[in-house]
Amino acid sequence: MTELPPTIPGSLNSLHTKNFFSEVPLNLDPQSPIILGVDEAGRGPVMGPMVYAVSYCTKDYQDNILIPKYEFDDSKKLTDPVRRSLFQKMWCPLPEVQDEPPTGSAKRTEIDGVGYATTCITPVDISTGMLRYPPSKNYNLNAQAHDVTMNLIQGVLDQGVNIDHVYVDTVGPPASYQKKLEGRFPHVKFTVAKKADSLYCIVSVASVVAKVTRDILVDSLRSSPGEIIGSGYPSDPKTTAWLRKNQSPLFAWPKEMVRFSWQTCETLMNNPSTGSIPIEWEEQFLNSKKNMAQQWAAKSMVNNEPITLDNWFSS
């Protein structure tokens, strides 16, 4: 597969989060309710983006085309070639219409009744959100995930798609999340469940879109084709080996690749044997008996105030 899926180009080499919305399928039967699935890929890894995907079609299309003809399932249960082949059938124009002049409308694909959208949350955005200061201003991963999901659903609604029922795969408590979604979209039915990607075909489709998109983006992070970075999970020895090998003393790792807010990174940066230069941040002193001023103040400080611009100049 030489051509890239359309979810990729906007997010390649992007420092920040980008969205992609496919065109709305032409044959969405108005007589059949539209269902939408939500899933993510790359929540746990210390490297690469976290990708959220939604996919939607009519219930009839799911029941009569997707389920009987295709092997959509939880993306982790499918092999990489199968996942890529399934997604390709959703975005790659059929050969017989490939050379037709552009008409401005959606080109025919094998799986032509499914629309989809993605948000690729970059390592920079994940880390900066989670590491805001003061801690009360943190934008944690769950909040990021919920906001991105709601923005994707809103984006599809804004395309004029009349969504009837949304199925969401979640890792957190389903009840409170479902309530939050129902509050935001009162005219849409929601089913929030753990392992929804195994239970509902339309969520499986979203799971495949998210996983293929993330895998290609992670591949693109390699500085050379032979570079081994592993799966990106902290438990993967290849990933931890890459982190150790590529750690620099001051800035540690390329921010485009690594989620600094993961404990794995913190541990490596605090380990003197890695050659890391210690950098101290204000939050390290919040629960300490010695406040930041006392810790920081070299004896050159006249008093115990933090070193800020105003007292630095006036002291």
Binding site: H16, D125, Q144, V148, F251
Partner: peptide, 18 residues
């Protein structure tokens, strides 16, 4: 290390934020 780091982020308005 400043060669590859500490550059001004001119696309910050695209950051995912509340």
């Amino acid at each position: 290390e400043f060669v590859d780091n500490f550059h001004c982020d001119n696309e910050d308005d695209l950051t995912l934020k509340r």
